[in-house]
Design a binder for these strands. Structure first.
Lengths: 176, 176
DNA sequence: CAGATTACCTTGGCCGACCAATGAATGGGT
DNA sequence: ACCCATTCATTGGTCGGCCAAGGTAATCTG
């Protein structure tokens, strides 16, 4: 074995393993899951991420934009732009809130609602694919462990669901 | 309880649960994990995603860009632009490959190498935070289950590590 | 009631990620 | 030797995400 080979020598200590094998595996699995979801969503005419928005709209009826922001745990500007595109697509309708003139009420159109079965099919399809070969006990165990990890991370990341985001302003980003 | 309330009535059937609770939980956990990683990486002057690139460079020495693309499982254009920014930052050096005039050899600079302990600290810190309260058996179980899921998804998503991406061109994206 | 504060959304900028198309260099086939 | 297919990298476009700043409206306070 040569020491100056420009290719990974396979005996090199993996830097990833030195800082959290489970975290790395989690990121990897999530990435693959996202790719697989993106492929299926593409055939429905949706970009990855939009399905979450639509799910919330299907569940909740006319909602204030701020509720979506809080419930999805996204940035306000992200939601604004995403809704603009979804509105232009005809999947979503936006209108003023009579009770608050600065708020915006968002609602899924009939065409947007028609995507529901497709999106839910994508997710259940992915669920089935991901958990192939896992028995009921393994699935429950995975769900339980993911719940624990989520609870551990919830403290500082803010949960997407009910808790408002903690205002954690920190170091200024380098300009590179 | 009013039926026309614009707020989620909490008894509404959650659309997320109807299409894969584990998948949803996985996406949620991965998101929180990414947010937490991003916060810590910011203090090192890195954007989320760049740490993976640097890890590969620390492990492998001078590498062809195509190796990075395959090993990280990213798009070629993504790697190109990321490396341009990392080079402008001084974390990375790029030069021609004498063996192939169209290839580019990438290498971490000394300044880039100096980030290694910081990044590995971020990941191990995150690992510790995520797995708080989990015993060794639980951690091993989580790693095992994530490995199984990764194996299930590997078939169609292409693995980031050794396998080349499967060329899965599909439906044309909607223009919305 | 007037002024300051807060909440709600929008805009602009940046980066990671994808696809599509292009240009340059290599390699294989006849 | 030639042409053609493949590979390598770049550019341009789009979208999901974030942060920072700005503008309007509601609310809290003196």
């Amino acid at each position: 074995m040569s020491g100056t080979d420009p290719v990974c020598t396979e005996t090199t200590p993996p830097s990833a393993a030195r800082g959290g094998p489970v975290s790395i595996a989690l990121a990897r699995v999530a990435r693959m899951h996202r790719i697989a979801a993106g492929r299926r969503l593409k055939e429905l005419g949706l970009y990855p991420g939009q399905e979450m928005m639509m799910m919330r709209l299907w569940d909740c009826g006319p909602v204030r934009q701020s509720e979506l922001i809080q419930s999805l745990g996204l940035d306000a500007s992200t939601v604004t732009k995403m809704l603009q595109r979804l509105e232009q697509c005809g999947h979503v309708r936006r209108g003023p809130d009579p009770a608050d003139r600065r708020a915006v009420l968002v609602e899924a159109t009939d065409e947007g609602r028609s995507l529901r079965t497709g999106v839910e099919g994508v997710w259940s399809d992915l669920e089935q694919l991901s958990l192939q070969g896992l028995g009921p006990d393994d699935r429950a165990e995975l769900a339980r462990l993911l719940g624990l990890v989520a609870e551990n991370l919830r403290v500082e990341a803010g949960e997407a669901g009910e808790c408002p985001l903690a205002p954690g302003g920190a170091a200024p980003r380098a300009n590179c």
